[in-house]
């Protein structure tokens, strides 16, 4: 499974129920569009660390890094390479 698919699957399993019939696009801002709740960012951090075997640090925390599937993929490319 590609990184994009893994991330999509994780986000889709955490969509708030009012949005779980909507189709999530790769560049949708999941926070601004209300796809996820306030605890999600932390769950996403745990997922990224465990799934991609990296440790996120203080200076990685910019929410822009995690705001869409595309931004997460690009953040991981910067961290881990393609």
């Amino acid at each position: 499974m590609s990184r994009t698919q893994k991330i999509r699957e994780f986000i889709e399993s955490h969509l708030v129920i009012s949005n779980n019939e909507k189709v999530l696009k790769d560049d949708d801002n999941i926070f601004e569009l209300g796809f996820v709740d306030s605890l999600f960012a932390l769950q996403l951090v745990s997922f990224i660390e465990k799934e991609f075997e990296i440790e996120l640090e203080n200076n990685d925390l910019d929410l822009k890094n995690f705001s869409s599937i595309n931004s997460i993929v690009s953040f991981l490319e910067n961290k881990l390479g393609r």
Partner: peptide
């Protein structure tokens, strides 16, 4: 934890 990250990361953690 960075400016603007107080709720998302610090409070939740």
């Amino acid at each position: 934890g960075g400016v603007g990250n107080g709720f998302t990361y610090i409070v939740n953690t």
